[in-house]
């Protein structure tokens, strides 16, 4: 048996082992040596106790950090998106490359009328035709959201300096004004709300919030469900905290939709499928809960 030496040198040596002792990483013999020393040295025993308490306290502090509620849903969405991209890529890589080259050539070579150019702001018929053309590939229930986004967010002229968030909230009226802070708190950093109002398009009323990140526009569009309207027949992109979200692409726009008993809600942008869906996941649970509570 190894003889344990007491005194200052022993304390210094034991303290060198202390971190490994706390982590149970010492060999059995060394562990016993430390234990025997601690039984007879109150100073070292107090040091071990203090370090152990700090370790436990640190772990608790880190584990008490809040994890965003929608993080799992967003990771889920990103994985789903990645899976689809990988699948498409491996299956269609060479064909897609050829098509892309041809398409790129056509885009620049063919006359301008072959691609949907933005009509003049004063040309209401042209705007309607543009919306119809862009949304051809969408189901009727998703066209509703894209239509109002283009009609309102793309064609509308914004004031250079948007009103304050409070003013915009006031403009939305008492039933919907809480949507403004709710959305503001959930969109990624760098996005700001530039418009929040109620508007009309093709005979429907909409609650419409428009945001920008400086280069793209994104809308949250909400409207009351009409008889027979439902997203349930569409393929679900995924669930955001239990709320099914349905996304589809229409030319360079992506439309993510979700619904409550009374409302249809859409997140529409040209940010790309992944980013649009991520923002929809971030908004869907809270907006869904908010709309479920709207009465009247």
């Amino acid at each position: 048996m190894k003889l344990v030496q007491f005194g200052e040198n022993t304390c210094a040596r034991i303290r060198r082992y202390m971190d490994s002792y706390i982590n149970n990483e010492l060999l059995v013999e060394t562990n016993h040596e430390v234990l025997r020393h601690l039984e007879t040295c109150p100073a070292c025993a107090a040091e071990v106790e203090s370090r152990t308490r700090l370790k436990i306290r640190l772990k608790r502090a880190v584990q008490n950090q809040t994890v965003p509620e929608d993080l799992q849903a967003r990771v889920h969405a990103a994985l789903r998106q990645e899976s689809h991209s990988s699948f498409a890529w491996t299956r269609w890589a060479s064909a897609a490359a050829a098509v892309l080259m041809v398409a790129a050539g056509l885009w620049f070579e063919l006359p301008r009328w072959t691609r949907p150019a933005l009509p003049d702001l004063a040309d209401r018929r042209g705007q309607d035709a543009f919306i119809q053309k862009v949304s051809t590939s969408l189901s009727a229930v998703l066209k509703v959201g894209l239509g109002d986004h283009i009609h309102c967010a793309i064609f509308r002229k914004y004031p250079k300096n948007p009103p304050s968030v409070d003013e915009m909230a006031q403009k939305l009226g008492p039933s919907y004004q809480e949507l403004v802070p709710l959305v503001k708190a959930r969109v990624p950093e760098g996005y700001r709300i530039i418009l929040a109002h109620q508007c009309g398009f093709q005979g429907r009323r909409f609650v419409h919030l428009t945001l920008t990140n400086g280069s793209s526009l994104l809308s949250l569009v909400i409207t009351r469900r009409q008889p027979g309207e439902s997203m349930q027949a569409l393929p679900i992109s995924d669930h955001a905290a239990g709320v099914p979200v349905y996304q589809a692409a229409a030319q360079n726009y992506d439309v993510a939709g979700f619904e409550t008993d009374q409302f249809l809600a859409y997140v529409v942008s040209d940010l790309g499928a992944r980013q649009n869906l991520q923002i929809a996941y971030a908004l869907a649970p809270a907006v869904h809960q908010f709309l479920a509570a709207v009465r009247g």
């Binding site: 880190v62 950090q65 993080l71 799992q72 967003r74 990771v75 994985l79 950093e189």
Partner: peptide, 30 residues
């Protein structure tokens, strides 16, 4: 996915920034 929350918390402390941790954790899973 069962490790998502722990990874996020560790990333938040490594970067001292929860927004960056959010991006990083998504990248980790991808």
């Amino acid at each position: 996915l069962p490790h998502l929350n722990d990874l996020y918390r560790t990333a938040t402390r490594l970067l001292a920034d929860s927004t960056k941790a959010d991006d990083v954790v998504q990248d980790v899973f991808l």
